[in-house]
Design a protein around this nucleic acid. Sequence first.
DNA 1: ACCTAATTCAATC
DNA 2: GATTGAATTAGGT
Length: 150
Amino acid sequence: MPRPSRESYGDQKPPYSYISLTAMAIWNSPEKMLPLSEIYKFITDRFPYYRKNTQRWQNSLRHNLSFNDCFIKIPRQPDRPGKGAYWALHPAAFDMFVNGSLLRRRKRFKLLKSDKEILENELAALTNINRIFFRTTKPLPWKLVMELLF
DNA sequence: ACCTAATTCAATC
DNA sequence: GATTGAATTAGGT
Ligand SMILES: [Mg+2]
């Protein structure tokens, strides 16, 4: 994993792909997952180059998050409200930069169609569980909930 | 020169 | 914010 923490390229474009920058941001975080806004912040905080043309590169970065299987969208937990989901690195993609550079990996990380479907089902299940908590102030009758679910 | 990863534009939800 | 496609740019051999 790329792990630059305090670099300075001035106003020059740093030699990292959006995938690298995003992986750095996520890896640098305590929980190894960040909402979009924090990924942006990580990048603009240390690379002045990205304080311009924000609409362009942020759209590209979002494209990367959705398109690349190495990034997975974790639904936000009810106890941590905010906008958008969290983004994490797929555990099987930790080594996606080996034998490559931070500008261009040797191969794209792509999940098998079947593995992708399994992952999507798991995340969808998580979203459903979270929905049970959504906007409830008082504690839910867990005993009852569990009995209904299982 | 070639392969294909990365970036961009932009429609759509 | 997130997803997707199509077209273009560009890194690495
Ligand atoms: Mg993804």
